[in-house]
């Protein structure tokens, strides 16, 4: 019964995706849109898989991945540290909270021109933008999760003679892990998006640059390929993240 329902739901879910591809194929074949404007999905995916074997394309993908991970990792470390510190120290929270409240709703992408001016057009400015964008959801989730931790967990550690700072990192942080990971997942997807956009705005390499280069040369097929690549990358990173998450949250009660 349950298995039948699961399969039927999966089938229903496949309908709009297949439908969209079919619609795309139909429009492309009907001659409504010339191939220069809309190539068929077959051509696009063939090109995508062909590019997966091309070292030049993989180099661009690697550059994007490097910026993504460097930015995301620094954002995680900074977001978690600041979030936990704000829970641990009232004085620190009094400084950090208003600054976060001012900076969180600022569209970070607007900082990008300034970052290119100060950090140059290379990796550093893109990584900095990823950090600026991914850090806030992680910081906020860490702060909210850590302030909701049952105080008796922390008391149990303090009573065992553990110092307040160690308690923050050995008890409060792991106890807030479900919330931290929710923030980190949002941060990861944002990193994925932001690095691509930054590469589109100014860059000489990376997947975003490939899209802009294709656009300038009106190579429509090659414009779709980086887009497919970045969303596949997003899906893969999300799946990888879920694996890590399941491992880290082994002892916690299941959600929902």
């Amino acid at each position: 019964m349950n298995a039948v329902r699961q399969w039927s739901e999966r089938l229903i879910g496949a309908v709009p995706i297949i439908g969209l591809l079919a619609l795309w194929q139909a429009i492309a074949m009907s001659g409504l849109a010339p191939p220069a404007l809309l190539p068929t999905p077959g051509v696009v995916f063939a090109r995508f898989f062909q590019q997966l074997g091309s070292p030049a394309f993989l180099d661009h993908a690697a550059v994007t991945l490097y910026r993504l991970f460097a930015g995301f990792m620094i954002a995680v470390v900074m977001g978690v540290t600041l979030g936990i510190a704000a829970v641990g120290s009232r004085a620190f929270a009094a400084i950090v909270t208003p600054v976060v409240r001012v900076l969180a709703p600022v569209p970070k992408i607007a900082l990008y021109p300034a970052l290119t001016l100060t950090l140059g057009y290379d990796d550093a400015s893109k990584i900095a933008l990823v950090i600026a964008d991914a850090m806030f959801p992680i910081l906020l989730a860490t702060y909210q999760g850590a302030s909701a931790v049952e105080p008796k967990l922390a008391w149990s550690a303090r009573a065992a003679g553990v110092s307040p700072v160690r308690t923050l990192f050995t008890v409060v942080l792991p106890a807030a892990m479900p919330s931290v990971l929710t923030g980190a997942r949002i941060g990861l997807i944002i990193s994925c998006i932001v690095v691509f956009l930054a590469e589109m705005i100014t860059s000489t390499d990376g997947l975003g640059h490939l899209l802009m280069r294709a656009a300038r040369n009106f190579q429509t097929v090659d414009m779709f390929v980086p887009l497919i690549a970045i969303s596949m990358l997003g899906l893969m990173l999300n799946a990888l993240f879920n694996l890590v998450r399941r491992r880290l949250l082994r002892g916690f009660p299941e959600e929902k």
């Binding site: 008796k152 008391w155 550690a157 065992a160 003679g161 160690r166 050995t170 106890a175 892990m177 002892g251």
Partner: peptide, 30 residues
């Protein structure tokens, strides 16, 4: 708080991310 006074709470307050052994060892290892 100090290790001369050990609390036991109604809510147990066990660390959910640690095993039974990990919970008991925590204070000693720290």
């Amino acid at each position: 708080p100090g290790p001369d006074r050990g609390p036991v709470f109604q809510e147990f307050a066990l660390f959910p991310w640690k095993t039974v052994l990990g919970n008991v060892m925590y204070g000693l290892q720290q």
